[in-house]
Write a protein that binds this DNA or RNA. Structure first.
Lengths: 223, 223
DNA sequence: GTCTATAAGAAGATAGAC
DNA sequence: GTCTATCTTCTTATAGAC
């Protein structure tokens, strides 16, 4: 019931109570605080960000934060679940389009890259702190959500193979993981005002993913 | 000169002295301690791992660790620099083979996946804690090493394009980043004793990367 | 090379006044 | 909804005996 040792908080030992995003009162003030915290978590990492820093950023004292949240974990919980809820909703819409597997997969790649901008902070936290956060019982739903997303992708890849659209000799699960990794890790270097926007990123990746990097020419063998 | 606020260490404030891997005395005992620490860093994250835990793992007390290392940062520094030195050496060997750009790139992909097993812990730390560690001046060499590696890859991709081996319409730098991401992030889910070994991973990725996922068939357009 | 003992302070969280 | 004040525990790191 207790989960792992957590960050050894102190005071009158509070073993990370429940207070999911959905259950908490959804005030604008609260949402604003979550946004501020998300930026700090993304920049410095979850553990390296102190509740004092979050409070500073909001112009209040650390104790006042506990009027809105019962723990630091609750804040990051809200950051992550907001992102995941949105992502899964978008995937579902793509699935209901009636397109063939290749077009659905194309849409899903675009959806993935499309979240880089609006959910940049949440994705960064998910990348960097997932390994730490997953050890706490309260974040089990993250694992569940990941499994659900994997199922959606793998089903599409298999459908594409069955329809003769995708090569049959690739492993669906492995292929999904590589696509997923390529999309989300881009959050590390993607900059909204850089040379490329997320549409260009998606187009580029879709080209290489479907048609490959090679031209078919070989200098050593076929020539 | 000081860098950022660091983990606010205490005692007689020690602002993270220099003591790079190469400069420290290379005893077997020391190497063993670094290995133990690397596993903990990978499992729990750098910040969440305490010097007490590292000492526990080694069967000594935390104070005794400071006979071998002057700070926790020095330990992780040694973990990362050992990996990077090995990686860059392997890349250089591949470059000197005299093969064409496609074969060299193939070798480099294999080298990448091939490090997942021997350097699993270091790669995990690099993935999860890079964002945090990079803020300290002493880890500037990480950025330099990354730039060197990028240069090696981009040069090969451009050479392949010039030789007509790779499609000319892809962005070399972007392509490199996506390849890099796909390889290293695999450390998150790759398990040495799982269904696939690193050779199979590399082969699979090389197939999709060069030849693409699509078969050329289209259900909607070409009928 | 390890232990004992401890410094000095930063952490998350709480209680109650305003 | 925020502040004041504070508790308790954990942290990295040190000094010197053995």
């Amino acid at each position: 019931m207790v989960g792992v040792t957590t960050r050894k908080n102190s005071g009158t030992a509070t073993p990370a109570k429940r207070q999911r995003a959905s259950s908490g009162p959804a005030s604008e003030r609260r949402d604003h605080l979550v946004k501020l915290a998300a930026e700090l978590f993304a920049r410095k990492g979850f553990q390296a960000t102190t509740v004092r820093e979050i409070a500073d950023e909001a112009g209040i004292l650390s104790g006042s934060l506990y009027h809105h949240f019962d723990s630091k974990e609750t804040i990051v919980d809200e950051v992550l679940s907001t992102f995941l809820d949105d992502l899964i909703a978008r995937y579902r819409a793509a699935l209901d389009s009636g397109k063939d597997a290749r077009d659905v997969l194309t849409d899903m790649v675009r959806i993935g890259f499309g979240t880089l901008e609006p959910h940049r902070a949440a994705i960064t936290v998910m990348q960097n702190d997932w390994n730490y956060l997953r050890q706490f019982e309260r974040f089990n739903y993250l694992v569940k959500a990941e499994e659900e997303v994997e199922q959606i992708w793998v089903t599409q890849i298999k459908a594409g193979q069955a329809a003769g659209l995708f090569r049959p000799d690739v492993d669906p699960k492995l292929t999904y993981r590589m696509i997923r990794d390529t999309i989300w890790v881009a959050v590390r270097w993607f900059r909204p005002n850089g040379r490329l926007n997320t549409n260009a990123l998606a187009d580029h990746y879709i080209t290489v993913l479907f048609d490959g990097l090679a031209t078919g020419e070989r200098t050593t063998q076929q020539a």
